[in-house]
Simulated assay, not measured.
Amino acid sequence: MKAVRLIFRKPFPTAYSIEYLFNQLHKEFIQTGIPVKGETLPHYSKGLLPRLKNLLSLFKHKNEIVHVTGDVHYALLGALRSKRMLTMHDVAFIGRTKGIARLIYKWLWVKIPVALAHKVVVISEEVKTDLLEHVTIKPGKLAVVTNFIDDIYQPVERKFNAEKPRILQIGTAYNKNVNRLIRALENLPVTLVIIGKHNSEIKELLLQCKIDYIWLSGLTLQEVHAEYLKADILTYVSLKEGFGMPILEAQSTGLPLVTSNCSAMPDVAGQGAVFVDPYNVDSIRSGIVTVIKDNALREKNTSLAYLNVRRYSRERVVADYMEIYKELSA
């Protein structure tokens, strides 16, 4: 088998999910005997010159499988002397940009890297659908390999606080739909725990709606895990997601889940959730109230959730990537 080189972006302090995922896979690949090395790009992906230097840093690799693990798709352009592989976690960033920036992202992050790649991996059917709206890919070049659940997330005994449930919300970006969630919680006796970057607009709405809240940021993996264990409900009513790891993290620990009925969420969550219309405040509120009041539904969904998470084992993800590496080595 050809040597595999996992290429990582230089991570910003608050962005490390891709690195964590592939560092775990890296360890598994080594144990299976794959000749694999990890390499972090020398510069943050910000500005033209640092990105150009990142790209050129890969030109030294020859006759390997160069696997760009996410985000810095443009770096694949520097791996012209090797087999090229790209994992794409999301392409929604194209829709969030306009004008020249949109054209740059579309061509240097999507069209050209995908054209140059010998294999493109996406993490969900949702990302696959989104990607195919922008590019045409030959059959066999595109594969879906999902993320896996970290071993830290295990079933725990829970005592549901129906009097004043603690509701966990992961993320504060626009697509996380926190504003509608807050309006849905107005006048409900709950504590909302938000993990994510601080946002003055969200804070103002929390005060306006008189929500009892706790806002946390910069947490370690262990600290985030601790918040799952303290919570009574996870709300994940995003407008759009490429995957949605909090869904599986909640399900793995037996945490009741309210999530969106669109984008990647139904596929990832299976039957172990209460689904709501994320564009409708009343629907979000109704879903949360149902979970609070219906003990039998919570127990049923927890059982279904435990069945669902079996689809996302580390072993299966490792096996899927190994098959691709073997294919590219042939």
Rank of each mutant, 00 (worst) to 15 (best):
61 H>F: 15
202 I>W: 03
111 K>G: 11
101 A>N: 14
159 K>R: 09
330 A>F: 14
106 K>W: 10
144 V>L: 07
131 L>Q: 01
186 E>G: 04
311 R>I: 02
199 N>C: 04
313 S>G: 09
142 L>A: 03
129 T>E: 15
108 L>C: 09
240 K>N: 10
36 V>S: 01
48 L>I: 13
307 L>E: 13
202 I>P: 00
14 T>R: 14
213 Y>T: 00
162 A>G: 08
193 V>M: 09
298 R>M: 03
158 R>N: 05
43 H>R: 14
317 V>W: 00
120 V>H: 07
170 I>N: 01
45 S>D: 15
174 Y>K: 15
112 I>R: 10
273 A>C: 07
18 I>K: 01
29 F>N: 02
67 H>W: 07
140 G>D: 05
139 P>Q: 13
200 S>Y: 07
155 P>L: 13
185 L>Q: 08
11 P>S: 13
218 G>H: 02
226 A>D: 10
126 E>F: 07
16 Y>I: 05
120 V>E: 05
190 V>D: 03
132 L>I: 04
196 G>N: 03
211 I>K: 03
133 E>S: 11
211 I>T: 04
258 V>L: 08
46 K>P: 07
238 S>Y: 08
46 K>L: 14
10 K>R: 15
132 L>R: 09
28 E>I: 04
116 L>I: 01
142 L>C: 07
326 K>M: 07
290 T>L: 15
314 R>Y: 02
264 A>R: 04
